[in-house]
């Protein structure tokens, strides 16, 4: 059993951080993990992405060309990764920054207004946590508790930041769970 995903967005949206948190949480859950960031001339101010693999046995390729899941935090990332996700895979879309619809009909789509939810919770920087929560809710790739523990560790000493990030994570989780259970998230299976 292998979970792999690509998380992509603008630099500064915290996509590398939530990827690392997933890898840490997977490791804490006793899974094999790898985390691979994009690096290159685009590292400053441009788009960035990371690939996370969480598996029951040693991770083969850390490079994933056809991910089972893509989490896209901005429009350029949707343009780039929509076509790459495996048929029947999952696409998490940050609808706060992406207004266009997903064109493929063979994917499960979870729409997450990540920035709106984060703003409402009073921490605009926690949009990444909303998206991470939604991914966990939709896939249960790692346990919510493990990630919550990491949030407390990452922001240790900043009680307010911890609270708002936890709230973002939990709200995202509930949304992901709901959308995944809901028929609309599971559109059409492969070859249907």
């Amino acid at each position: 059993m292998q979970n792999d995903l690509i998380i992509a967005g603008f630099g500064g949206q915290g996509v590398l951080l939530i990827g690392k948190m997933l890898a840490y949480a997977g490791m804490a859950d006793g899974k094999e993990v790898s985390w691979l960031p994009s690096y290159g001339p685009e590292m400053r101010g441009g788009t960035c992405n990371c690939t996370v693999v969480i598996a029951d046995r040693p991770v083969g390729s850390p490079v994933v060309e056809r991910p089972r899941v893509a989490m896209v935090m901005n429009l350029p990332s949707l343009e780039k990764y929509e076509g790459m996700v495996k048929p029947g895979g999952l696409l998490l879309v940050n609808t706060s920054l992406i207004s266009r619809d997903v064109q493929r009909s063979d994917l499960r789509v979870v729409k997450v207004p990540a920035n709106e939810i984060a703003n409402r919770l009073g921490n605009p920087r926690a949009a990444n946590m909303v998206a991470l929560g939604a991914y966990l809710g939709a896939t249960r790739a790692v346990s919510l508790a493990a990630v919550e523990g990491l949030v407390r560790e990452t922001f240790a000493g900043k009680a307010k930041v911890i609270d708002s990030n936890l709230a973002a994570l939990q709200e995202g989780y509930a949304l992901g769970e709901r959308e995944a259970a809901d028929g609309k998230a599971v559109s059409q299976e492969v070859g249907a």
Partner: peptide, 10 residues
């Protein structure tokens, strides 16, 4: 290579 240098694993 650059992958080994940049990737994170346990």
């Amino acid at each position: 290579d650059g992958l080994i240098g940049q990737m994170m694993e346990p």
